[in-house]
Structures are given as C-alpha cells and as structure tokens.
Design a binder for these strands. Sequence first.
DNA 1: AAGACAGCCAACCGCTCCCAG
DNA 2: GCTGGGAGCGGTTGGCTGTCT
Length: 271
Amino acid sequence: MGRAPCCEKMGLRKGPWSPEEDKLLIAHIEKNGHGNWRALPKLAGLLRCGKSCRLRWINYLQPDIKRGNFTKEEEDSIIKLHEMLGNRWSAIAARLPGRTDNEIKNVWHTHLKKRLGNNSHKGVDPKLQPRKSALKSERLNHSMAPESHNNGPADSPTSPVATSEVTTMSDTSTAMAGVSYVEIKTEETDELIQMPVIDESFWSEDLDSFQSIMDENLESDSWLYNIQAPTDSSRDCLEESPGQSVQDLEENKDFWYDLLIRTGGVPERSE
DNA sequence: AAGACAGCCAACCGCTCCCAG
DNA sequence: GCTGGGAGCGGTTGGCTGTCT
C-alpha cells in the first residue's frame, strides 16, 4: 500500500541541500510565495520534489526560525506540552515560536526523553495517542464528556469526582470553540456541578478562550478546578489512559500561565 | 594517529487528512 | 457520496561530527 515516493522520479535530487538550492528556493518563495508545493520546484528551477522543498523551507529556511540550542524554559515547555499533547509535535511547535516540529522532535528524542527516563517522569503513552481521525470525530461531536470514567484523581481534595451520572450538556451559554460542559456529580457532596471540558481544538487554536476562562476564574484563584485536561481526546483513549488530571493541571498552573503569557495568550498577572 | 562508538540532526518515507471536481 | 491529488504529520534513517580508547 502507499503511493510511490515522490522523489523516485528520474533526475530528482535527494539528500542534503546545497547553498545554491537554498538560494533558489528562498528567492522563489520570497517572490511568489508557495502556493503549490508540487509545482514549486519546477517553477523555481530546482531538481527536487515539492515535498522536499516544503520540508526544507519549513524546517530550515523560513525567516522567523530560531536556530541554536533550546533554553531550559523551552525544554520545560516541551516536557509539559508533551505530557498534555503527546507526540503531536506540530501542536507543540505551534506553542513555541520559532521552533519547528522536526527540531522539537529531535530534541525530545535526543535529550528530553533520557532526562525524563531518569526521573521516571510520566507522559502520554504514544500508543494511546489519538489518531487524527479520532481527533476529528471528537471535534465534530464536540462533547468530550468523560461519561463513565473518572478524569480526575479520586484523592484530589477539591476536584469534583466524576461519577457514572455525568451527563453531557449542550453548550448553551457560550459558543466558545473547544469548550463544552458536563454535569458532574461529586462523590463527597452529591452535588451536581457544571464543569467545562476543553478539547483539542481549544488548546491548539483558541488561546483567547483560555484567557476568557482564566479571567473569569482568576479572581477566585480557583480556575484550575474548573478546567479539565485536553489530552484524552477520544473515549477509547479515556478508557485506556486517565491522562492529565485536574490535579496535574493544578500543580502546573504556573507553567500554563507562563506559557500563555509568553505566547501572548494572557496579560501578566499582577502579584 | 586512527579506529570505534555515540550523539545529533537534516531529510526521507509512508500514512492520513482535506478538499476540489 | 466518491475519488484522486496535494498537503501535513509523525516515525525513522543515514551521514556527519565529536569523543573516547
């Protein structure tokens, strides 16, 4: 299965790019943009396939790419984001301005994985990563309700404990992208409370929404109790992996806040 | 000095998704 | 609704470089 590699056609170069090829590619894209990657090499006078050109541009030639070593903060961000998102390198890269998915992937495999291995740090099992199709259907359903599974730690003192009586609510009061609401009955008090559930699209695309939620909740300093983690993006996944808990988010509150500040998501909090 | 080994990273490969026809 | 082509993504590889013996 699978179509033949696009570079197998006669005469197309493979392997490392020469400075001349880089110049040709940059000159062409600066002048014409990259509307059609497949047609680009011909137009630019390159003996490469479009895929190779795209990769070279995205990973190396783009003007806003940050080269050089990763800072400690960047590495920490990657670790946290990997906990939340798993091996979704492009999603992680989207939160680290100037860094590419390929670069992040390399750093992960060469440095961070070992580091975490030593710390027996938990992460999302790659085998449990949702496939894109799962993400898509989840977005369409827009209700990532943990219907029959506890998505938070049972021993978390203040977090609600999901029970079998959780029901998905229609998103009536807000039309916020990536956010739906569930009713959760707490085990301790038997109270029904509404809880926002944030899905993948929220985290990857809508920092403003997060800002809104944070703004609403920061005053009481309890906002994290009301946000569920985004990592379990399909019911199958939920069944196999409890993923990030409310408690995890709680512990990492500062991290999320710092990240959002750095990426322009929220204004700095006045202490 | 040179061979072996390990680490790093740019690039490739194969798969899935998206969308126009 | 179906199909095919292009784009994007994540996993993997291969070659270069640095370090060790």
